[in-house]
Design a protein around this nucleic acid. Structure first.
Lengths: 234, 234
DNA sequence: TCGGGAGTATGATTTTGATCATAGCATGAG
DNA sequence: CTCATGCTATGATCAAAATCATACTCCCGA
C-alpha cells in the first residue's frame, strides 16, 4: 500500500465515499500470483471477496472424471467469487488460476458486506455486475446447449476479440495467451476438435496464430459462423 | 391489493421496513397469466422487475435456428429478470412462459432501485440471490459442457426432485408438469433422446410416470448416475 | 546448437446423439 | 363413447465429435 489511496481507481471501490474507502483500504490485501499457482481451489473455504487488479485469471470447474471446464476469463476490474462469498461457510464452487502473472485485491467477507451495507451505491453496482455476469452465464449455457462445436468456438473467439482484442494491422490480437486446450475447455470440446476447427478457421482466413498469439482476422466472418448453422468447409 | 399488507410475506419485500413496504405496495402490480401466454418475450424492452408469487414459470432462450433452451424453472419467491432489469434500455435476453396458471408481482425498475438504495438489507439479499443464481448457472454450464446426455438428464431430475419434489409412498413426485420435450430443452438434447433415456431410467426403476406426473423413485441412484460416467444399460 | 517439452497437426476408428419415420397410447372435449 | 390431439415410444440411418494413435514444429534453455 505505497500510494495514498490505492483504491481510488479500482472499480467498485471508486464509488465509495472517501471516508469509507480509506477505512476499507486498511483491510484490503494485495497479493501476486504467477502462472501455475492457484489463487484458490474448488472446495477451499470461501472467506474472501476478490478483485482482479492486474493480469488475467481463469475460473475453472472440474468433473469427477477429471475433465475441466473454464467458465470465464477474468480481466482487470472483474470481481470474483462474489457468488461464493455469498454463502455462509460454503466452499468455493470452482478454482481460480492465473493465466499470467497477476495481482489481486482481497477483502474479508465481513468487511465487504459491512462496506456494502454502508454504501448503497456500491451495493447497486455489485447487483448490476452480478446481473451482467448472470446474463453472460445464461447466454453461455444457451450456446453450450444448442450450438455445434464450430459455432461455439466461433462465438468464443468473437467474445474474446471484443473483450481483449488489440487492434493490429492484420486484425485483432487477443491480449491473453490461450492454447487450443484452453479454448477447448471454454466451449466443452476436446483439444483435437478445437485444433481441427481452428485449422479450418485458419484455412478460411478467419484467424491466424498459435498458442503464443491468436489473431482474429475476420470478425464479421466469425460472427456469421457463430449464428449460421453452416459449417466452414474443407 | 385486497389485503392490508400484501408484501409482508413476499421474499425480499419482507425485509423492508414497514414504512418502505407500504410505500412500495402502491407501486406493485399483480398480474395473472395462464399456460400458453407469455409474461414477456425475448427482445421485449425490460422495464420491470418481477417476483413470482404463485405457480411456476420457465425462462427460455432460443437460437436463430428455432431451437429452444430452458434456462430455469422458477418457483414462488423467485425474482426474475433481475439480470435484465439491470441494463439501461437493453431488451430482455430471454422469454418467460408460465408452466401453469401463475401470479406475478411487477415493480418498475425505477421504484425497485430506489427501494434498494433505501434498504441496504434488501440490496444485500438481492446480491445473495444473484450470487446463488450465478452459481447455479455456472454449475449448469459445467454439466452442459462436460457430461453425457444421460448424466445431464439425471442431474436435472435430481435438481428438480430437491426443489419441487413432494414426498409420496413410492418416491418424490415433481410438483411441476414437464413433458419430455421440456426436460430435453433443459439439458440441450432432443425429445427423442430424452424419451429414450427416460425409458431406460424407467426400466432401471429410477423414475416413473409421464407428462402429467414424473415420480423420482430412486434419488440416490440418479445422483450416482449423474456423477458416474457409466451408463444404465438396456 | 542441440535436445526436450509443450503445443499443434492429422489420420483411423468408435461412440454418441441427431434426424427421419412411423406407430402407439392416453386424456379430455364433445 | 369416441375421436382428435398431444405425448410417448422405438427403429433405422446418418453425422458430429470423442477417442486413440502417431508425428511434427516451434521455442526455450542449457
Amino acid at each position: 500500500m505505497a500510494e495514498a489511496d490505492p483504491l481510488q481507481r479500482v472499480p467498485l471501490f471508486d464509488l465509495l465515499k472517501e471516508r469509507d474507502r480509506r477505512r476499507l483500504a486498511g483491510e484490503v490485501v494485495e497479493t501476486r500470483y504467477r502462472k501455475g499457482e492457484y489463487i484458490f481451489r474448488e472446495g477451499d473455504p470461501a472467506e474472501y471477496f476478490h478483485i482482479l487488479k492486474e493480469g488475467a485469471v481463469k475460473c475453472v470447474k472440474s468433473s469427477t472424471s477429471g475433465k475441466e471446464c473454464t467458465l470465464k476469463v477474468l480481466m482487470p476490474g472483474d470481481l470474483f467469487c462474489c457468488e461464493a462469498a455469498v454463502f455462509d461457510g460454503a466452499p468455493h464452487p470452482g478454482s481460480a488460476e492465473p493465466l499470467c502473472d497477476v495481482s489481486i485485491l482481497r477483502v474479508s467477507k465481513k468487511s465487504y458486506f459491512a462496506m456494502l451495507r454502508r454504501n448503497p451505491d456500491a451495493a447497486l453496482e455489485v447487483i448490476k455486475y452480478l446481473g451482467k455476469r448472470l446474463n453472460e452465464a445464461q447466454e453461455n449455457a444457451k450456446i453450450l446447449a444448442l450450438d455445434r462445436a464450430d459455432q461455439r468456438l466461433a462465438s468464443l473467439l468473437v467474445k474474446l476479440a471484443e473483450r481483449v482484442g488489440v487492434r493490429e494491422p492484420n486484425g485483432l490480437r487477443l491480449a491473453v495467451r490461450l492454447t487450443r486446450q484452453d479454448l477447448a475447455n471454454m466451449v466443452g470440446i476436446t483439444v483435437e476438435t478445437a485444433i481441427r476447427i481452428m485449422s479450418r478457421f485458419k484455412r478460411a482466413k478467419l484467424v491466424s496464430g498459435g498458442a503464443k498469439q491468436i489473431v482474429i482476422r475476420d470478425l464479421t466472418g466469425l460472427k456469421h459462423l457463430a449464428v449460421d448453422p453452416l459449417a466452414v468447409r474443407h
